[in-house]
Design a protein around this nucleic acid. Structure first.
Lengths: 355, 355
DNA sequence: TTTTAGCACTCTTTGCACATCAGTGCTAAA
DNA sequence: TTTAGCACTGATGTGCAAAGAGTGCTAAAA
């Protein structure tokens, strides 16, 4: 009781750590006897039991039923991650793996994130994901166009956050370079620096009047622009290694698993969870610590990816509460560093590789 | 025995049909008694039993164990789909649903396919997918470029099959309009009508010499081109509604489900399955009828989408063997017709909708 | 005051016997 | 050829006892 205020005794920490790690390995409740055997603790099982009882009333442990061992609570995992986790010494082999798997130099953020999340999946054996966060404040920086044939062209939108989106537009009427250039100029004049929410009817009408006899185009184009902007707004989530979830008995309940799959597909919840994070450290969300209810019995670990001082994405993994935190944390950290580095050197020649 | 050669007696067909449909509804083995009750057949359960025994030796039915009812075998489902399935009268409500859900007119094939597969998921309640098939013969038709800023530009590749792909290219050296135009011209001259396999070292060297002092660009650009081409080659598969799988007890085994998820993620198997199909009719693949082993205990139903006489994609659903074939078949047929129509009218104005 | 041994207690798991039930195959009569 | 009847089979469910794992508590030891 007295120790509630700040921290636990050293022995309690040791015991908690041992329990968490044993449970991560085995997935089953762990009892007092097991701890005495497998640990360098010199006390008896009875002592452990006393300590465990206290840890339970403090909220760090839980008991599935009276005569079962203890299981770490979410609070227990949290303490473990925050305080007890020793730096995991990544083996040389694993570093080599990361470097090898990431060595494909790619120019596009999307691809890099995608690749990185796949590497995360492979190395951690948990389901991985890559995110491009929501960015509510995105505006239009500039438009470009390119003619494809007489009835289609490409609209290129450069956004304020540096991303470039293109759209293939089919027209009903014949378009030529002149029309296109006029359109492009008009778009740039009227829509530059605008956000999705600022596009309104008066603007549309202005555009239409400027395009004169080609005003038919305007509706189509505006629709595409609107779509692109809302895509930028709403972020992206790509998941891979879903089958990894099934390895862990905690996901064997079809209903739970269904909810999780649904959430991963809906994307919203996960995007909300990750989108407003700053910094470039690895984050750990255990159970429903956040408002996101669906992730109730899972842990999400992710690391923001930054480029030029801005958070441009995130990679992470999702798995059971008894995740191998040490491994996952260092893996994501290292991987994230790798990615950030990749992004900071603006396409490093990579001479002579293509052959 | 005698009837093995061609077909079954009418009564056998009736019984088989009744069994398949009962099993689709209930998911459990169906017994002789149940058939006599629920059907307009006028014979007794004993007669049914005799017939069922014969149907079993013929391979249309299976018995999980001696004292259970019968379950349709894959061959049974196949016969049902090919011969017994009556035209399912789609209700007015469902047609209305399709029309409403599809009414979002979109210009891009990808989006349309995506949307359509989502509609398929919603309406059938099975996991849906959209495919852009592999196309080994794709060549380059033309290049376009657009300058973004002094260190990046967009490369646009128009492929022989009509698809347009863009790539955001970051350069190490400064580029301007002149350089870009030169690059574009060179690419068009040297690479038009080529396939991925035809791009070789001599070509690269020609390009480099033509680009003179900007030859550094060539490597980067070629890499992107190569990536784009192989993307075009290798097709695309997008899955949605994965959580739907979990509704059916046949997917409750974690190992099986894992394999299926893995296959859906790997994409290869499904792409192989669907890629070389012609025509625009709905196809049904039951169990491992094809070489694809992983789909052993599932049925894949898909419908190719054609545009201008070419197969440009496919939409479909995947679910348990006891799929509601009548519903799925007509649904996909109708939906596919809808999509094809959408694609054939080159962006139909849709005036006044945006507002 | 802390630790430990010991023991009673609780709850889950497992195995087994038993009854039930659904559905079959077969035989003999209609 | 069809059908009623019946014995048979195998899955499923239930009750119960035994085993096992782990706890909490008490009293003695350090």
């Amino acid at each position: 009781m007295a120790e509630r205020a700040r921290g636990l005794t050293d022995r309690k920490k040791q015991i908690l750590k041992a329990i968490v790690e044993a449970h991560i390995r085995g997935g089953e409740p762990v009892g007092s006897k097991y701890i005495t055997q497998s640990q360098q603790l010199t006390c008896s099982s009875a002592t452990i039991r006393n300590e465990m009882a206290e840890l339970e009333t403090m909220g760090y442990l839980e008991q599935p039923h009276t005569s079962a061992g203890r299981v770490p609570s979410k609070q227990g995992y949290r303490f473990y991650v925050d305080a007890l986790l020793e730096e995991y010494a990544m083996t040389a082999k694993e570093i080599a793996q990361i470097n090898q798997l990431m060595k494909v130099k790619m120019s596009e953020l999307d691809q890099i994130l995608d690749k990185a999340s796949k590497v995360a999946t492979t190395l951690t054996n948990y389901t991985g994901f890559a995110i491009k966060p929501r960015s509510r404040t995105v505006t239009i920086r500039r438009f470009e166009t390119a003619l494809i044939d007489e009835k289609s062209f490409i609209l290129i939108l450069v956004a304020s956050n540096g991303t470039v989106k293109t759209r293939n537009i089919l027209t009903e009427t014949v378009v030529d370079m002149q029309v296109l250039n006029r359109l492009c100029a008009a778009l740039n004049e009227l829509l530059a620096e605008r956000a999705a929410s600022e596009i309104n009817l008066p603007l549309m009408m202005q555009l239409e009047s400027r395009m004169a006899e080609d005003s038919l185009l305007v509706g189509t184009v505006m629709k595409s622009i609107y779509e692109v902007l809302s895509e930028l707004d709403s972020g992206e989530l790509k998941v891979n290694g879903l089958d990894r979830l099934l390895q862990y008995p905690e996901f064997s309940d079809a209903a739970d698993l269904g909810e999780l799959l649904g959430a991963l597909e809906r994307k919203d919840d996960i995007l909300d969870l990750v989108s407003d994070v700053e910094g470039d450290r690895v984050n750990v969300v255990i159970g429903q610590e956040s408002a996101v209810k669906v992730i109730n019995n899972s842990t999400v670990v992710y690391r923001p990816i930054r480029q030029g001082g801005r958070t441009v994405g995130a990679i992470g993994v999702i798995g059971p509460l008894r995740m191998d935190y040490a491994r996952v944390l260092t893996m994501l950290d290292s991987l994230g560093g790798n990615v950030s580095q990749l992004l900071s050197e603006p396409h490093s020649g990579e001479k002579g590789e293509e052959k």
